[in-house]
Design a protein around this nucleic acid. Sequence first.
DNA 1: TTGCACCTTTGACCACGATCCAAGGTCAAG
DNA 2: CTTGACCTTGGATCGTGGTCAAAGGTGCAA
Lengths: 143, 143
Amino acid sequence: MVVIGIGKLAKAAEVRTDTVRYYERLGLLAPPSRTRAGYRSYGTADIERLRFIRRAKSLGFPLDDIRQLLALRADDNARAAAVLTVTRARIAALDTQIRDLHAIAEALSRLADDCPPDAAVSECPILAHLSGLHRHPADSDRR
Amino acid sequence: MVVIGIGKLAKAAEVRTDTVRYYERLGLLAPPSRTRAGYRSYGTADIERLRFIRRAKSLGFPLDDIRQLLALRADDNARAAAVLTVTRARIAALDTQIRDLHAIAEALSRLADDCPPDAAVSECPILAHLSGLHRHPADSDRR
DNA sequence: TTGCACCTTTGACCACGATCCAAGGTCAAG
DNA sequence: CTTGACCTTGGATCGTGGTCAAAGGTGCAA
């Protein structure tokens, strides 16, 4: 059985050694066995586990969710429905966030499109909006 | 001229007094004049300014951008183009963020739709994906 | 044996935008 | 004159996910 140190593990999983220890503290990684000198020693399954965490992170799961997912993966009695619950909750959170950001981007785009670049800032509808004026001070000729 | 203390200012602008002092430290609010006792004293223009900050924040501008926007608003020689530059940069950042989140949400939704709730976790395509298996271990009958 | 890479721990620090706490000063009402 | 609301400062804390530094021990090669 292949035994590697924290440095090789980190390199294999493309994380920092600090991150490995950090995940151990958070309970995402079990405390590994130690050499006589006190060095952490890992096996290939740990590389797998770290890569799982990386992929989950890249899909927007917070570390708390990832801890749950790891527990479910290791639980022979667990049903896929449990994974689905975590996943659907994440999707819902993402959808909310996307909708919020989209609404903001839309609002900014509309204001930006209405903004004449060469005008003085006093004519700028963006600043006007931020100042709480919902009409341009001199838009009598628009529309 | 109306003079108010930090508590009334904060209440009028719907922020905490701590936030007012915090913004002062960050340079979003000029250090106000003080009463003989050392109390900060503000005027109605400061309520306006705080509300401006609140609106800008609600449109997703970070405080650093807001400091710039406030400076532009106060600069008679500034052109709307400068406001537009800040705004377009924010829109671009939002669009990138939205696209990233959308891609993640899509990927998760596809996985979730493929996941049979009653199956054992070992059959869960979500966990399979996170484990780096891009095919289900037993999907011979799908497609 | 020396030198270097690697490992250990504890604890501080980063962004971001606040929020809260402690210890003390001020002010108006009753 | 006391009570309570308000104000002051400096510094600590939160959440999230790490990153870094200091001071020391270990392992291997020239």
